[in-house]
């Protein structure tokens, strides 16, 4: 299969698209995301180079690598948030459960309903805690107050923050601590009941205690969700992930079981990075 030119938002050769879809349907079903020969440019900056990665279901996949190596770009491609940057161009394919998400037939709104995202900086809306969680269900047309109440409770419980917040549901989310805000944002992502949760350095703005809470939460969440997490913290990747991808200068240097990567990396550059020799 050749590289399928696929400028986002532009017409793609329909027969090529079908052939990708066929190929992908025959794949093992425990792979959520299958990235093939993905290239991405911001204008003239070649930010992702020939990425091939398989993300497995109900696992935590950690993405590590030095600053500027393309980690955020990669996970933002997985829910097509990169498109918000003008002048982005991609080639290759990413199949999400058998559908090429870079194809024209994929509705981004649909994709982002199945793939929740948690950002580096907690970004609650300037609304009440309740409204923050109910936002996702509401934009998907859920109006029933009782159902919304249930979703809010379930999501907050899912993020293990219900007990802390259940008496403060009508308070503004800005009144919460940074760690609480981030767990609220995770709960908010759970409220759309996604299959996958993307996390871009979710703990980098938090203190060690809140970080630990989020790590524990991620361990719980992976029972039900596939999680892809960017982190700068090597110990964190080693502690909580099942597989680790090491990115360098827009390329995947090594992708393997986390144990293997951290105990016996096969690439010299991986070894140098995780032992702190650069980055």
């Amino acid at each position: 299969m050749g590289v399928i030119a696929n400028k986002m938002g532009l017409q793609v050769n329909p027969t090529a698209k079908e052939s990708i879809a066929k190929k992908i349907n025959t794949q093992k079903n425990n792979i959520v995301y299958d990235t093939k020969e993905l290239n991405l440019w911001y204008g003239h900056t070649h930010a992702l180079k020939n990425i091939n990665l398989e993300i497995h279901e109900k696992e935590v996949t950690a993405i590590i690598g030095p600053s500027g190596c393309g980690k955020s770009t990669y996970i933002k491609t997985l829910n097509r948030m990169v498109e918000l940057v003008p002048g982005v161009r991609t080639t290759g394919s990413i199949s999400y459960k058998g559908n090429n998400i870079l194809g024209k037939t994929m509705k981004v709104e649909d994709l982002r309903t199945k793939v929740g995202m948690v950002f580096q900086k907690p970004n609650p809306f300037p609304k009440s805690i309740y409204e923050n969680i109910a936002y996702g269900p509401k934009i998907h047309g859920i109006r029933n107050k009782k159902l919304l109440d249930q979703i809010v409770e379930r999501s907050l419980r899912g993020a293990y923050i219900w007990d802390e917040l259940k008496d403060r549901l009508n308070e503004n989310a800005f009144g919460l601590s940074g760690g609480q805000q981030q767990r609220l944002c995770i709960a908010r992502a759970l409220a759309i009941q996604p299959d996958v949760i993307l996390m871009d350095e979710p703990t980098s703005a938090l203190d060690p205690k809140s970080t630990l809470k989020i790590e524990e939460l991620v361990q719980e969440l992976k029972k039900d969700y596939s999680i892809i997490m960017v982190t700068h913290n090597m110990q964190q990747a080693a502690r909580i992930s099942d597989r680790t991808a090491f990115f360098l200068n827009g390329e995947v240097v090594e992708f393997d079981n986390t144990n293997k990567i951290f105990s016996n990396p096969s690439d010299k550059r991986t070894e140098d990075y995780i032992s702190g020799r650069f980055g």
Partner: peptide
């Protein structure tokens, strides 16, 4: 971004 991220 938070809003787009939820499929809005």
């Amino acid at each position: 971004e938070a809003s787009y991220g939820m499929g809005a």
